[in-house]
Design a protein around this nucleic acid. Structure first.
Lengths: 324, 324
DNA sequence: TTGTACGCGTTATCAG
DNA sequence: CTGATAACGCGTACAA
């Protein structure tokens, strides 16, 4: 076990409180004689003292830790997001713990209950549930909360992409190349991003095939075997995993159907299919989310809900086939 | 604030100890009368009691939490790994916190110091440092520790891919297609996986270009501008990010140089370049890592260091150009 | 400038 | 079967 305040007090012949004052450099630390201060510091150094953060937090009710709960850490999009949030927070003296709800409502609930018990000051969450009540039920009232990527009615601190703008951008690009009838591969209805993207597609196009499933590669695979029997002008996928899965399956055939995909696809320009992708501004989202969290932690005024705009990027194949 | 044991004791007219016994279903809970037991349970339910895990851990010195520290959570490989570890641990009643060292030695040290202070029962780490002393210096002696992916001399609990076998597999495949002189794009020397892979390549081939940098897309980009001026028979990248970056840059040209890449590349078959990739068995690694951690947590005998073998997978383009 | 005493919420020991 | 009481390690009002 690590040395405690008591150990140091004993070693230096001072009292626990004095040691505490010095080592936690509290405001009262200045009012302590230079000599005892360095004597204590030396002893601490020598004994390898590490404050027990559990005990400290129990006492102060602050942990200097925030959690981010993402819906699928295996998805590179969330990985990037987590990484950027970590960097932003670390710069501000907070440490981050990442939780993975794996897109399972029960697991989300479990973590929502567990995290406050373990002690966190704030939470950034990509929620599964769309219900404010369910989301906040187990959270202590004071907890700083930011919802990310998927706004929840009634939660003021919210950072997300403007899905209307994003979807319009993508659909316009597909309309430009003459698409009228499309196949749609989309994630679960109850996830707002997938739903809004899907709805936008339905507004713009005649949807020949509407394949719904978990936002995983496998759904993309399955979708292709359904789509292959039809002949749409293009295929739209509501996220990167769906797009990747679809393309993996397509690769077995020789289809060159144009694809519109929400979220980033790696090595875009190396793909042999024409692809236009609608990418979100992940770094900006991460920054804003941390900012909104810190506003709450520091009692500053919360800025308005953040709607961040997206961009479309098309690959070489796409540009070659459909020049402007 | 949440209700405490004292609140419930007051509400039910029993003592704190009794309430504790019931609510923490300790072994002594059986020896408590049925009626007070349900009375307490009801009060707890009604008051919305949640045990303060900080306090509990302070007392019991157990947190039921393990941490996994990866070197780059933005890399899908680590994301997948983290996700699988999470699932394995959750099944066993542990909750997971993920830390990201971002391949920075100082940040790793910081977390290494911080995590035990925050209270964890075990740690699975993909280490930056190769020095056992540095790795364990700040860790309490009793802490369960597993090193993952990058073995560290002197740490018995270790799960990693057999890099010799993996590298040989990949090199043989490139030799088969006639490669003799290759360009090498590799990550930092001090990371064992990159180093071992690179060394194996140097043993098998004549290395025309040897580009070293951080294991990020940008290094791959930069490498291509160097490689493009030469004419190797093939290019080898020591991880997925390097491979992706390289290919992104290659896509601007029309090169069809064969690529050998360690780690998984998404949508392999859609790439227009011939590619053979050497993939690790991530699910098995995750399972073994958790298993070794639990051995330590439960005081069971530790199995031998795990060396897990890899496979090569080539894409359509590669198979078409170089049939067996 | 420093020490005393108490409390944060739990669990564990011991007595009855 | 149950209730005091003492820790766990730390911060802090209050007193000296």
């Amino acid at each position: 076990m690590s040395a405690t305040l008591a150990d140091i007090a004993r070693a230096t012949g001072s009292s626990i409180s004095t040691v505490s004052r010095v080592l936690s450099n509290s405001p009262a630390a200045n009012r302590i004689s230079r000599e005892t201060r360095i004597k204590i510091a030396q002893a601490a150094e020598q004994l390898g003292y590490r404050p027990n953060l559990l005990a400290r937090s129990l006492r102060t009710r602050k942990t200097n830790t925030v959690a981010v709960m993402v819906s699928d850490i295996a998805n590179p999009w969330f990985g990037r997001m987590a990484s950027l949030i970590e960097q932003n927070l670390h710069r501000r003296g907070y440490s981050l713990i990442v939780c993975n709800s794996g897109e399972q409502a029960e697991l989300e609930q479990e973590y929502l209950r567990l995290l406050p018990q373990k002690g966190i000051d704030g939470l950034i969450v990509v929620p599964i549930t769309t219900d404010r009540e369910k989301l906040c039920h187990h959270l202590p009232p004071g907890l700083a909360l930011v919802v990310l990527d998927r706004p929840v009615e009634g939660v003021p601190a919210s950072v997300s992409t403007d899905q209307q703008q994003a979807a319009t951008l993508l659909c316009r690009e597909l309309e430009r190349i003459g698409a009228r009838r499309v196949a749609l591969v989309r994630g679960p209805e109850h996830v707002s991003t997938h739903r809004m993207r899907g709805e936008a597609v339905k507004r713009h196009f005649d949807v020949l095939v509407d394949h719904v499933g978990a936002a995983q590669l496998e759904t993309g695979h399955a979708a292709w075997s359904e789509i292959a029997r039809t002949s749409p002008d293009a295929i739209v996928c509501t996220n990167n995993f769906l797009g990747q899965g679809l393309m993996e399956a397509m690769a077995q055939s020789n289809s060159r159907l144009p694809i519109g995909c929400f979220d980033e696809i790696t090595a875009l320009d190396l793909l042999s299919v024409p692809l236009v992708s609608c990418v979100q501004n992940v770094p900006l989202m991460a920054e804003r989310a941390v900012e909104m969290l810190l506003c709450q932690l520091q009692g500053r005024k919360l800025p308005a809900e953040q709607k961040i705009s997206a961009q479309v990027v098309s690959n070489r194949e796409f540009k070659a086939l459909f020049p402007r």
